[in-house]
Design a protein around this nucleic acid. Structure first.
Length: 514
RNA sequence: GGCCCGUUGGUCAAGGGGUUAAGACGUCUCUCUUUCACGGAGAAAUCAGGGGUUCGAUUCCCCUACGGGCUACCA
């Protein structure tokens, strides 16, 4: 069976926006498929209509698209194995349930929700280990295993609601080899008779999943660790159907944990700690509540994907952390996926984005900056100026939007002045010096960074001054802030006219008490 | 509670019977720049605990502790 062409799938259910973990599962499937020239399939598992959230499916597709994770088969891309949405495959599942019914591996059950609840209470009270519908308890319940044939028939004909449950073997060891965890074994006596087919005519995840994986010729099931406990059920299903020889190999991924405290990462953590957990913005259709996405926060897809890939996977000996998608495809192996859950670290996530920005060509940044300015209705300076701004700011930015936030004074008037320097250094003597410096700057024929730098240095030297007497104040005059690029760069970007202008405005605003 | 999975610095992690136990993020120090950032040089910080096996365990086995997942007519 290892000779079968690799076919893997990412199978989300549209019950809400997918977060980091979902994207990572999709990514690993994608990397695996690409690495082995296989097929990456997306299948929508929407068998539970009650939990359906409008927009969730589109969101997932958009998010994957943003990440550059492309799929070969899936919604809108039928290659003969479709449809790829379980609600559209509804009619296909019943026959498989019937097959199990016929072979005695499944049975009808008529218990109501209340009766099930009562049973659980009863067994819990009597101290029975597993208060579940299982090999022990099923003979006390209302099902086709204990009812006379004609009663079963009558109930069904009367339109009484029923479910179809799997009949788990009594006491068998069920083991399978997990690509990440090695051999994992369960005793069937610990497992319960899960519902395969619901009273609403839809299969449950378990049935649909196994049937679809079989029909779609899936060779490797790469999914979250939360599925590990139900894997023996799936293995049993493969056995009951007689599909052992084409059973996919399993790989159960460790979970992504919250940065602090206990438990897995959730939307709440993002809200509480102030970072995104979703790839894109998500507006909850029922509450209208908006959650910020990595994209909107200023992440580029490349570093986002890079970061997420390394949360649980590492290429081994390789002394490298920044990878392109292609590099990851090349290096990816399931063997190098870790076994333990990884805590999400937003600081590290930011680092990936920052590294990416530092390596970005100015032209890409210029486009991004232009977009921001346009959105804000701010006049866009000429290309050379944008070029200079990006060049000076790129090493200071973690996110693109900081190009604007940190350098807003290039586009708009100074909002406020940092007074700590002013109160310390702005005095009568300084005022005289700056009046003089202003004149000298105004007389410059050329105002390139280098020209400004030379002029200022000469001025300082010729007047027997210290850098500290001029530079910090000039910086405040031109930008209002203590931080930022070299003053000469700021001046050159502003241009001669505006530089002089800002020096003048400053003197007006801070006339030294009268 | 039961079942299953896991445990190398604060975080991501490499390694794997004999090593000074990599690297990165973060933190701190110094340096560059009279700013911030970048860059450069350093520092602190790890094999959960206890038993085995072995000449020798971080590495293999068992137990305990801790963490996590599952325990629905949800996926």
């Amino acid at each position: 069976m290892s000779e079968r062409p690799v076919r893997v799938r990412y199978a989300p259910s549209p019950t809400g926006p997918q977060h980091l973990g979902g994207v990572r599962t999709a990514l690993y499937n994608y990397l695996f498929a690409r690495k082995y020239n296989g097929t990456f399939i997306i299948r929508i598992e929407d068998t539970d209509q009650t939990r359906f959230v409008p927009g969730a499916e589109e969101y997932m597709l958009d998010a994957l698209n943003w990440c550059g994770i492309t799929y070969d088969e899936g919604p809108g891309k039928d290659r003969g194995y479709g449809p790829y949405k379980q609600s559209e495959r509804k009619q296909m599942y019943r026959q498989y349930a019937d097959q199990l019914l016929m072979s005695g591996h499944a049975y009808y059950a008529f218990d109501t929700a209340n009766e099930l609840e009562a049973m659980r209470e009863r067994f819990k009270a009597s101290g029975v280990a597993a208060a579940a519908y299982n090999t022990l308890t099923r003979e006390y319940m209302k099902n086709s295993l204990v009812m006379p044939q004609d009663e079963v028939k009558a109930r069904i004909e009367n339109g009484e609601p029923y479910v179809i449950r799997i009949k788990m073997p009594r006491r068998e060891e069920i083991k399978f080899h997990d690509l990440i965890r090695g051999w994992v074994s369960f005793n069937s006596s610990q497992l319960d008779d899960k519902v395969l087919f619901k009273s609403d005519g839809m299969p449950t995840y378990h049935l649909a999943n196994v049937v679809d994986d079989y029909l779609m010729k899936i060779t490797h099931v790469i999914r979250g660790e939360e599925w590990l406990p139900s894997a023996p059920l799936h293995v049993t299903l493969y056995n009951y159907f007689g599909w052992e020889d084409v059973m996919p190999q399993f790989a159960h991924l460790p979970l992504i944990l919250r940065p602090d405290g206990n438990g897995k990462l959730s939307k709440r953590d993002g809200d509480r700690l102030g970072f995104p957990v979703f790839p894109l913005n998500w507006k909850d259709p029922s509450t209208g509540e908006m959650s910020i996405g990595f994209r909107e926060r200023g992440f580029f897809p490349e570093p986002f994907v890079n970061m997420i890939a390394l949360l649980g996977w590492h290429p081994g000996h390789v002394q490298q952390e920044i990878f392109t998608l292609d590099e990851m495809i090349h290096l990816f192996t399931i063997e190098h996926i870790g076994k333990s859950g990884a805590r999400f670290d937003y600081e590290k996530a930011k680092w990936f984005n920052q590294e990416y920005i530092k390596k970005l060509t100015n032209s890409v940044l210029i486009e991004a900056l232009k977009k921001i300015l346009l959105e804000k209705g701010i006049p866009v300076p000429e290309q050379v100026v944008l070029q200079m701004i990006c060049q000076s700011l790129k090493e200071r930015c973690t996110f693109v939007n900081e190009l604007y936030e940190q350098g807003y004074y290039f586009f708009e008037d100074i909002r406020d002045y940092d007074t700590s320097i002013i109160s310390k250094k702005w005095n009568g003597k300084a005022k005289d010096h700056f009046a003089q410096l202003s004149k000298e700057l105004a007389s410059l024929k050329s105002f390139l960074v280098k020209d400004v730098e030379i002029a200022i240095h000469d001025f300082i030297k010729n007047n027997g001054l210290q850098n500290g007497e001029i530079l910090p104040l000039l910086r405040i005059m031109l930008s209002g802030t203590k931080n930022g690029p070299a003053v000469y760069e700021i001046a050159a970007i502003l241009g001669q006219e505006r530089t002089i202008e800002r020096m003048r405005i400053f003197q007006e605003k801070f006339p030294l008490n009268g």
